[in-house]
Design a protein around this nucleic acid. Sequence first.
DNA 1: AGGTGGACCCGAACGC
DNA 2: TGCGTTCGGGTCCACC
Length: 281
Amino acid sequence: LVPELPEVETIRSALVPALEGRQLERVSILDPRLTAPYPPDAVAAALTGDRVVRVGRRGKYVVVELSSGRHLLVHLRMTGSFRLHRNGSLEEDPYRRAVVRLDDGSDVTYRDVRRFGTWTLLEEGELELYLGKRLGPEPLERGYTSRRLGDALRGRRAPIKSALLDQRTAAGVGNIYADEALWCARIHPLRPAGSLDAVTVGRLHRCLRAALRRGIDRQGATLRDYRDPTGAAGSMQDEFKVYGRRGEPCRRCRGTIERLVVGGRSSFYCPRCQREPVPKT
DNA sequence: AGGTGGACCCGAACGC
DNA sequence: TGCGTTCGGGTCCACC
């Protein structure tokens, strides 16, 4: 459930050997929402015959680079997932939204229960503008320093939790890893983002990268039915320190994990070791 | 301009 | 047991 950077990276890794170098022989888009406002048949026709050069990732987007120079951007949102099918027979799936037949006879299917996910076909040269408008830097890239995180937070009065979910702060961070990073750095989710001093930003920077790396090492977190394209589950959920642990003991200080709504999203934290922001009087 | 809240969607979880 | 209601999650968009 809810693929964030580590889950999308796990999905990307699994898609690489199946997709790279393959030609798209037949593309069926079964749900018009997937490509809206563009007609699904037109997008399917445009994809047919093209070849996959590379499968990459930016933030939570899977970026499929095609030999025509175009890019297919897939955003899984809440419940999107890919499946690889070696032999040609596909079992029934009421939530299947697209099927891609490759030139080795295998199929890649896309399923999405909630239908929030999107497939966007960008013309050559459009990628940078499209992503640049929406995403900030990749938090795991070399060159993503504590200073860059501090620059993104400076002057912001929004809660740090909301600032972390802003994809322009650090691309790919979602609700789970934001909460885990804040717990690790001992920062209350409601603290104004701009109020963190350089030392605290440094702690957050280190904790955020550690949480994301750990998530990738663990092949993502499997809640409910998230699976990578080969059907494998992740194990990051076993390592959650706060996410989904309301009422359970903090693993660090023996406080009790609480739930708070910040910017309309549930936030789990330990009120004992993530101190309350000092109210202005 | 930055921040906030609603819309989108639907299965799961919850309340009676 | 069964029904209706609420919830959540990422992103976009309207509004303040």
